[in-house]
C-alpha cells in the first residue's frame, strides 16, 4: 500500500507519519509538497498535524485552499483514502471535505495529553480491524480542537454513522470530564459520508510504537492495510 504524506510550510507531524509507515509498517511512502497538483501513484494520503501556513486567518484555512488539497479533493472523489490528523482534520473541514469546523478549545489552553477514544464506527477502512466500543489510547496536542457543527449537519452525521471516535474515560464512558476541548458530543474523529476520508484530532502516529508509550494508533494503519484488496478497491466490513 503506497502512502503520501503531505507537507505544508509549518507541518510538524510529517516525519512521524513517514517514520511509522516506512519503519514500523514497512510500506512505501513519499512526501508530497503542498504545491503539487498531482499526487502520483498513492493509495492513501495523510494530512499530518502542525501549523500549516502558520494557521493564519483560521487553523487550516489557507492550507484548505492550496493546490495539493484540490488534488486531494479529486483523489477522494474517486474513492482514494485520506487520513487527516490534528491540523489535517482542520484542513479537511476548511476544504469542505468534512462537515463542521474546529474552534478554540473551550478551556482556552493548548492541550497536550493522553486521551481515551471510544470507537463508534467500525465500518470504515480505517477502523475495520477494531471492535465497536473498543477504547483506544492516543495523545492529543492542539489549541483548536473543539468540533462544532450545526444541528442539521449533526443529525446527518449521526444518521450516516459518520462519528468514528469520541473522547471517553478509560472504561469507554463518554463524559464531560473526559472531553479535553469542549468538542460537541465529545467528537474526536469523523468520516465523510462515503467513509474514505477520516479526520481526527488525536495523533495515531504518536502511538504506534511501544517505546513512545502505546501502540493503539497502529491499529488504524493495520485496518487500512487490511482494507486494500488486490484489485486496488477498498473493502468495508
Amino acid at each position: 500500500m503506497k502512502f503520501g504524506v503531505v507537507v505544508f510550510p509549518g507541518t510538524w507531524s510529517d516525519c512521524d507519519f513517514h517514520h511509522v509507515v516506512s519503519e514500523v509498517l514497512h510500506q512505501p511512502v513519499k512526501y508530497v509538497w503542498h504545491r503539487e497538483r498531482d499526487l502520483g501513484d498513492v493509495d492513501c494520503v495523510i494530512l499530518p498535524g502542525g501549523f500549516s501556513y502558520g494557521d493564519y486567518l483560521r487553523a487550516g484555512a489557507v492550507a484548505g485552499r492550496s493546490p495539493v488539497v484540490e488534488a486531494i479533493r479529486d483523489f477522494a472523489a474517486k474513492g482514494g483514502l485520506v487520513l487527516g490528523s490534528c491540523n489535517g482534520f482542520q484542513i479537511l473541514c476548511e476544504a469542505g471535505l468534512l462537515p463542521g469546523a474546529l474552534l478554540r478549545n473551550e478551556c482556552l489552553q493548548y492541550r497536550c495529553q493522553s486521551t481515551h477514544l471510544v470507537v463508534d464506527n467500525v465500518d470504515t477502512p480505517f477502523t475495520r480491524g477494531l471492535r465497536p466500543g473498543q477504547v483506544l489510547t492516543m495523545p492529543i496536542s492542539h489549541g483548536e480542537g473543539k468540533y462544532q457543527v450545526d444541528a442539521p449537519a449533526l443529525a446527518q452525521l449521526r444518521e450516516h454513522h459518520q462519528i468514528v471516535f469520541r473522547y471517553a474515560t478509560a472504561e469507554g464512558a463518554v463524559t464531560r470530564a473526559a472531553n479535553p476541548n469542549g468538542s460537541l458530543e465529545n467528537i474526536a474523529g469523523i468520516v465523510n459520508e462515503a467513509g474514505n476520508v477520516l479526520g481526527m484530532m488525536p495523533h495515531p502516529e504518536r502511538a504506534a510504537e511501544a517505546v513512545v508509550g502505546g501502540t493503539d494508533g497502529l491499529l488504524l494503519f493495520q485496518s487500512l492495510l487490511g482494507s486494500l484488496v488486490e484489485d486496488g478497491t477498498f473493502l468495508k466490513r
Binding site: V62, R65, A101, L103, Q148
Partner: peptide
C-alpha cells in the same frame, strides 16, 4: 466566501 470567513462559524 472562498477564504476570509468560515460559513460554519
Amino acid at each position: 466566501k472562498k477564504l476570509l470567513a468560515n460559513p460554519v462559524l
